[in-house]
Amino acid sequence: MTEPVRIRATVSEGVTQVRLMASHPMENGRRRLPDGSLVAAHHITDLAVLHNARVVLQARFGPSVSRDPYLVFSFAGGVPGETVSVSWRDNRGAQRSDSVTIR
């Protein structure tokens, strides 16, 4: 099982700022071990952020994204007490969804 996505969502003057970090190795499939063998590719491919079932961010990642991706973005709307949820899927079929209450 993967670690939870760390999410913080705060609202100020009608704009919600979201900060999130998805714990993931994000291996690109080109790194070699000391014995010369390749580490298999393992990276997030799709990520979506929803605010009350409305998509506010949708991303497609590839192997060039760094380990434990950290994103910061804002969207119009949001009220303290509402929910922001994040879900992702990786190239091996693993997926995770987490949510947080807006502060």
Score class of each variant (00 low, 15 high):
residue 1 M to Q: 12
residue 2 T to V: 10
residue 3 E to D: 12
residue 4 P to S: 07
residue 5 V to M: 12
residue 5 V to R: 09
residue 6 R to P: 01
residue 6 R to L: 13
residue 6 R to E: 14
residue 7 I to V: 15
residue 9 A to P: 02
residue 9 A to C: 03
residue 10 T to N: 07
residue 13 E to C: 04
residue 14 G to L: 00
residue 14 G to C: 01
residue 16 T to S: 09
residue 16 T to N: 09
residue 19 R to C: 11
residue 20 L to E: 03
residue 21 M to R: 15
residue 22 A to C: 08
residue 22 A to R: 00
residue 23 S to Y: 07
residue 25 P to M: 04
residue 27 E to T: 08
residue 29 G to L: 00
residue 30 R to A: 15
residue 31 R to F: 03
residue 33 L to R: 15
residue 36 G to Q: 03
residue 37 S to H: 05
residue 38 L to F: 11
residue 39 V to Q: 00
residue 40 A to R: 10
residue 43 H to S: 00
residue 46 D to T: 09
residue 47 L to V: 10
residue 48 A to Q: 14
residue 49 V to N: 00
residue 49 V to R: 00
residue 51 H to C: 06
residue 52 N to D: 14
residue 53 A to Y: 11
residue 54 R to I: 10
residue 55 V to I: 12
residue 56 V to Q: 08
residue 56 V to R: 06
residue 57 L to H: 09
residue 57 L to K: 15
residue 60 R to F: 02
residue 60 R to C: 13
residue 61 F to V: 08
residue 64 S to W: 04
residue 65 V to G: 03
residue 67 R to S: 08
residue 68 D to Q: 08
residue 68 D to L: 07
residue 68 D to R: 09
residue 70 Y to P: 02
residue 70 Y to I: 11
residue 71 L to M: 13
residue 73 F to D: 06
residue 73 F to S: 08
residue 73 F to K: 04
residue 73 F to R: 04
residue 73 F to P: 05
residue 75 F to D: 00
residue 76 A to D: 12
residue 78 G to P: 02
residue 80 P to E: 08
residue 81 G to K: 07
residue 82 E to M: 10
residue 87 S to L: 12
residue 92 R to E: 14
residue 93 G to K: 04
residue 94 A to S: 12
residue 95 Q to E: 13
residue 95 Q to C: 11
residue 96 R to T: 06
residue 96 R to L: 12
residue 96 R to K: 14
residue 97 S to N: 11
residue 100 V to Q: 06
residue 100 V to E: 03
residue 100 V to A: 07
residue 101 T to D: 03
residue 103 R to V: 10
